[in-house]
Simulated scan of single mutants.
Amino acid sequence: MVTLDKPIAVGRRSRRSVPGRPPWMGRPSPTVQALKVAAIAMIVVVMLYPFLYVIAFSFADADSVTSGAPLPTSFSTAAYESIFAGGVVTRSLLVTAGITVVGTVLSLIFTSMLAYGLTRTRRVPFARATMVYVLCTMFFGAGIIPNYLLIKQLGLLDSYWSLILPGLISAFNMIVMRNFFMELPEELLESARIDGASEFRIFRTIVLPLSKAVIAVIGLFYAVGYWNSFFNALIYINDTAKWPIQLVLNQYVVQSNSLSALQAPDQPAPPTQAVQMAIVVVATLPILVVYPFAQRFFAKGVLTGAIKG
């Protein structure tokens, strides 16, 4: 019999010494935890400071702008009152909101229908060939001039449809949604077919209600894309009354065009920097408000749709 000089201390073993446990799953030391907290706090400060700077100077008055201080010390709403009274920013916000809502709804409808059709490779003719064709669009594009000539030939210049139809279906979003549909139980769909349900009814009453997570994520992707798009408007829209907010932001903030067209003529002009920062806040705030509500769908929607097996 083998005897031990010292008893084994059961239950006092640290998580770091548990055999078979990966090192990254062990509890870090207090020093490592403190370093992680400091690093995360530094990253948060670096990421939040530009937002705080933009928001603060959008409310700055003339004295705060000319003082050269890192943040304004006195605040005013004159910049927001000026751009909303001018009418250009308000109209461009309505245009962008309409394009985003209509474009997102249509993109979700057509993307989900195409994705579900491409999961039925045995029932849909030329499904595999269509899948290859869609994948090719991820790597090859026609270019600016052919796209412009196509939009012109279709009579869509100066039309809101020129900002929606070219990006109606994203190949990447379609692939993510298709993979999510393929994870649905095939037995559930087959039982519906045995009961006499058509493919469209299966898609509408079974597939879509079970796919709310991926629909929310893909819908957010489309909405952000439509809201932030300005290049198509720059090429296809010549009427300034139809400019979306991002094109207004590009022309009057990035290109530094005269801000007189954005402001009411009967009001004193606020500082130029405050007006520019106010336009940035107005163009960014709606997406920042929507993101937290859709964030809880990200893990389930994206991971389930992107990983097969």
Rank of each mutant, 00 (worst) to 15 (best):
P22F: 03
P22T: 07
P23D: 13
W24V: 14
W24C: 10
W24M: 15
W24Y: 08
W24L: 15
G26E: 08
G26Q: 11
R27I: 15
P28T: 05
S29V: 05
P30L: 06
P30T: 06
P30E: 02
P30N: 02
P30K: 08
T31F: 14
V32H: 02
V32Q: 06
Q33T: 10
A34F: 08
A34K: 00
L35Q: 07
L35P: 01
L35H: 09
L35T: 08
K36H: 08
V37E: 07
V37M: 10
A38L: 15
A38G: 11
A39V: 12
A39P: 03
I40H: 07
A41W: 00
M42D: 03
M42Q: 05
M42R: 03
M42I: 12
M42F: 12
I43T: 09
I43Q: 00
I43C: 15
I43L: 15
I43D: 01
I43H: 01
V44W: 02
V44Q: 01
V46P: 03
V46N: 01
M47Y: 03
M47G: 02
M47N: 03
L48G: 00
L48C: 11
L48S: 04
L48E: 00
Y49E: 02
P50F: 00
P50W: 00
P50R: 02
F51V: 13
F51C: 10
F51Y: 05
L52Y: 04
Y53G: 02
Y53Q: 04
Y53D: 01
V54N: 01
V54W: 02
A56Q: 02
A56I: 00
A56S: 10
F57G: 08
F57D: 03
F57K: 07
S58C: 07
S58A: 13
F59H: 05
F59C: 11
F59G: 04
F59L: 13
A60T: 06
A60V: 07
A60S: 08
D61K: 09
A62P: 04
A62S: 12
D63C: 08
D63A: 15
D63P: 04
D63V: 14
D63I: 13
S64P: 03
S64C: 11
V65G: 07
V65F: 09
T66E: 12
T66N: 10
T66K: 14
G68S: 09
G68N: 05
A69T: 07
A69C: 09
P70T: 02
P70C: 10
P70M: 05
P70L: 09
